[in-house]
Design a protein around this nucleic acid. Structure first.
Lengths: 144, 144
DNA sequence: ATTTATGCAAAACTTTTGCATGGGA
DNA sequence: TCCCATGCAAAAGTTTTGCATAAAT
C-alpha cells in the first residue's frame, strides 16, 4: 500500500492512524478487483500477513465504510455483503440474476443528476452506488 | 394484501403459492414505507399474525429478493441489511452519512442509460437500485 | 509519552437447515 | 389429492465486544 494512495490520504485527513492492519486490508481490497465478502477478505488478509486478526479486519471494513472508501452491497445470494471500493466516491455494476456474474462499468453520467438532486433536496452529495439487475448474455443463451 | 397486487401477480407468474406467510410479509413491507431490517420485518409480521414463524419470514424475503420484488441494501450501523421494495423494478434514495436519514425519490431518468447498457454489454436489464450518499440539510447546519 | 488500534477468545446475533405437519391449488 | 411451504428448534455462520498489550504519532 503506497503511502500516496488516495485511501491512505483519506485516513490521514480524518486523523486515523496508518496501521499495518489497515494497510493490509486495503491492499487485499485492491487486489480483489472488488466484490469480496468479509470471509474472502479475511482469507486474503491472512495470506498477506497471518498476524492480523479477524476483528481488525472487521474494524477496518467498518472504518472504511464510515469514511466512504467502501460500500457493502448484497449481491452474493448469501446474506453476507460484498464490499466494493468506492473509487472517486462512486461505483457501478450490472449483476446477473441467474449466475451472479458482475460487470463493472465506469461511466455513469450521473453528475448532472447529482447536481439537480443537491439543489432540489437542499443537501450535499458525496458519492453514489448504482446497481443494475438483469440477465447476462450467457444466461440468456441457456434460457432459450 | 389485495390479490390484484402486482407483487402477488409476480408470485403467481412464477408458479409460487400465495400463502398466508407471504401475504403477511408483503403487507408488512408495504406498511414499512421501506427500509426495514429483517428484525423489524419479523416484529411487524408478528404483530399482524403471531402464528407466522421467523424462518418463513426469511424464506419469503429470500424468495422476493430472487424474484426482484425486494432488494437488501446496507443502510448503516449494523451489518444486517434493510430491505427496499423495488416498485416497478427500481428504487432510489439518498442516505445521510451523519444521521442515516433516508430520502426516497422517484424519478431517476435512467431509462436511456439502461437501454444503452443493454446494447453495449449485450444483456437484458430488469431493474436497478441507485443510492446517493451525502449530508442532509439538518446535519449541515449542525456542522457549521 | 500518549493514545489509538490490535489480537485473542468469548459472547451475541442473524440466518439457515432438517423434518414432520399443514394448507394451497 | 398432491406436494409445496410452513413452524419449530437446533445448528451454523457472522459480527461484535472486553481487555490487556502493542504500535503509531
Amino acid at each position: 500500500m503506497d503511502s500516496q494512495s488516495p485511501y491512505i490520504q483519506i485516513l490521514r485527513e480524518h486523523g486515523c492512524r496508518i496501521t499495518q492492519a489497515r494497510k493490509v486490508v486495503l491492499r487485499a481490497l485492491e487486489n480483489a478487483a472488488g466484490h469480496y465478502t468479509s470471509a474472502q477478505i479475511i482469507e486474503a488478509v491472512a495470506g498477506l500477513d497471518p498476524s492480523i486478526g479477524r476483528a481488525s479486519v472487521f474494524r477496518s471494513l467498518e472504518l472504511f465504510t464510515r469514511l466512504g472508501i467502501l460500500r457493502p452491497t448484497y449481491i452474493s445470494g448469501n446474506m453476507t455483503p460484498a464490499y466494493v471500493l468506492m473509487t472517486d466516491g462512486h461505483h457501478h455494476h450490472v449483476i446477473c440474476n441467474k449466475c451472479q456474474a458482475i460487470h463493472d462499468f465506469d461511466d455513469c453520467g450521473l453528475d448532472e443528476m447529482t447536481r439537480q438532486l443537491e439543489k432540489r433536496l437542499n443537501l450535499r452529495i458525496d458519492g453514489h452506488l448504482l446497481e443494475f439487475y438483469g440477465v447476462c448474455a450467457d444466461c440468456q443463451v441457456v434460457d432459450a
